[in-house]
Design a protein around this nucleic acid. Sequence first.
DNA 1: CCTATCCTAACGATCGTTCGTTCGGAGGAA
DNA 2: TTCCTCCGAACGAACGATCGTTAGGATAGG
Lengths: 192, 192
Amino acid sequence: MVETRRQQQLDEVASALFRERGYAATSVREIARALDLQGASLYTHMASKEDLLWSIVWRVAERFRTTVEPLAEGPGTPEARLRAMIGAHVAIVAGEREHAAVFLHEWRFLGPERKAEMAARRDAYEARFREVIAAGMRDGTFRNGHAAITARALLSSLNGIPAWYRPDGPLGPGELADAYANLFLSGLLADR
Amino acid sequence: MVETRRQQQLDEVASALFRERGYAATSVREIARALDLQGASLYTHMASKEDLLWSIVWRVAERFRTTVEPLAEGPGTPEARLRAMIGAHVAIVAGEREHAAVFLHEWRFLGPERKAEMAARRDAYEARFREVIAAGMRDGTFRNGHAAITARALLSSLNGIPAWYRPDGPLGPGELADAYANLFLSGLLADR
DNA sequence: CCTATCCTAACGATCGTTCGTTCGGAGGAA
DNA sequence: TTCCTCCGAACGAACGATCGTTAGGATAGG
């Protein structure tokens, strides 16, 4: 299943529109007009509007799964692994803001089966973070606390990045990841 | 402008539907059916679908503005003020999950003027957090860092709460707020 | 009787999608 | 080279469904 040039353009344009107007509020004809096409012509390149959303969501989901999840079971201390996971996660949400934002907010408009699949994946992804955090609490590296809440707090935080990050701003993705890792690991309070 | 019983029911039912399906994907007739009414009958109680969204969004926005923002300029150290703001913010997002979720995610479907108004409000709200954080960095309480990013990280974190928090779970809003405050202030790492 | 509430019917617009067709270029046969 | 065929890409028109909303009439409680 090769991806033609037109299909790439379609994914790109659709991502931009889905992100800024939302999937449900974006019509097929709007997407077509952004490509200087008629609405009906899109169906040469896609099977349905939902399939178009799916192709975007799926690709980002795969990226998270293949680049972030393995780090949870890699070598190193829980602290090092968590830092690595934060770095990889930030690289995606900051590096592909558009697609990531669609993945994060529009997957709930998928049909029931696909939606359930993504929900399960999200739970599994969250569990990876929770496990590393729990491991750190167990071995004394991390302060004891609620690993589940901490994981959700961290991920919510990171997933907010596409909403405001600008690649031409003062911070690159690497520095951004460090800022988040330091914040969550060391906290805001200065040493006494 | 008194609010009749029916209008309260309407707000309630619409909030639930807007939250779970999204504003754009929820039809007037669906809202009506949840109230055992015909679609057209809703227009006895509301002026338009957007006005219905607006009434929900506006109420929550006012709640944030009147209960959280004043704490930024209250007495006490930056640390104490930030803790108070987190507590008040969590009280809303955990105590009124449904309305808060609509406020947080659906305001972008408002018309241009109202949308711009809410965007400005959100920026002002965020600025309150940023100011308190910056004050703490200035007086040495907080580690030096990016106050803007920290504020956004904190707020993204707190605003994720409606997505998973269950009022019948093990944690009350107060304990939840403490967990978040401790996490952001002290960090995950145990003292050495 | 009045007023609030809800109804049925219908409006024009727009939705996602299908249809039959046209156009232009690629590729093989002569 | 010339002809013929085929195919992907795009078109305009139209489908049935649904959208938000309006109009006008029925019903019922004070």
